[in-house]
């Protein structure tokens, strides 16, 4: 379903120096440093999988998501998702995916949520019957109820996130990218979001790729994790194996997933 092979991507970053003299120089000539954001990343994902994509801040998670959702064009490598190359057939391809950026909103701030949904229906050209059916299902399972008639600015963060996720699923995508969907949520909302994610995965067979810093998300949802650090893929496998490996090594035998990840980060020296 998803095959990523040998993706590399580097960015040019302008050097910033202090001092008036060098700043004046920078007006005319900037010096750049190349930063490798992704370095030869390869993996494959089967339909219906939930994959947790983890790594410290700045490791390249968002860049990978951007490449896979067709926003960014990589320098090297190939990627085939449902037969499309995301960055080449952008318009046709994105019809099949849903993306949630946890830190940004796709809903119109000042109008009721349902108005945003209606607009998205037109943007994605969703047939009316399918739209109504999806809307009904999402409203029930995400417990949106009256929320969808409230302007977004009056919603709490947890309520808003539920609406955001619903908005990304209105066009029944087969793949859902979730970029930090639980960021800033309280415990109740987090659990609600997690339950919903696993439910659409089981019932509708949506493939889910999830980035997060909350290891409880991973533990609750993902059977498989990808660990990325400094642009390189470091680990690809299931959580159980990981736990066995690291628990054995530690003397005190503590096995909280958070500890394991910290140990992994340390071992790979990526923090």
């Amino acid at each position: 379903m998803i095959t990523v092979s040998g993706i590399s991507k580097s960015f040019k970053v302008a050097k910033r120096t202090s001092g008036v003299k060098s700043a004046f120089k920078a007006l005319f000539r900037r010096e750049y440093t190349e930063v490798a954001a992704l370095n030869d990343i390869s993996f494959a994902i089967k339909p219906g999988e939930i994959v947790g994509y983890i790594g410290p801040n700045g490791a390249g998670k968002s860049t990978t998501i951007k490449v896979m959702s067709g926003i960014l064009v990589p320098d090297k490598g190939s990627c085939s998702i449902m037969g499309y190359t995301p960055w080449l057939d952008r318009v046709k391809y994105v019809q099949n995916i849903g993306v949630v950026f946890g830190q940004r909103s796709q809903l119109w701030w000042d109008v009721p949520v349902i108005d945003s949904f209606d607009l998205l229906r037109d943007i994605y050209d969703v047939p009316e019957a399918e739209y109504q059916e999806n809307l009904k299902l999402l409203t029930e399972t995400l417990d949106l109820g009256d929320l969808i008639h409230t302007p977004v600015r009056q919603l709490s963060l947890g309520q808003r996130m539920r609406c955001e996720i619903a908005a990304s699923l209105l066009h029944s995508p087969s793949i859902l990218f979730l970029d930090e969907p639980t960021i800033g949520l309280d415990a109740v909302s987090k659990i609600a979001v997690r339950q919903f994610i696993s439910r659409i995965n089981q019932e509708k067979g949506v493939t889910i790729i999830l980035t997060t810093h909350d290891m409880n998300d991973i533990e609750a949802l993902a059977s498989r994790i990808l660990l990325i650090g400094k642009g390189t893929l470091l680990y690809d496998g299931d959580i159980g194996t990981l736990r066995d490996k690291y628990v054995d090594e530690t003397a005190d035998g503590s096995s909280s997933i958070e500890d394991i990840i910290v140990r992994m980060y340390k071992e790979y020296q990526i923090t």
Partner: peptide, 18 residues
């Protein structure tokens, strides 16, 4: 600058219209 342009790119419509 606030990154909302990425959002437009994951939608199946031309950028000019959006």
């Amino acid at each position: 600058s606030n990154g909302d342009f990425d959002r437009l790119l994951v939608r199946p419509r031309g950028t000019v219209l959006q």
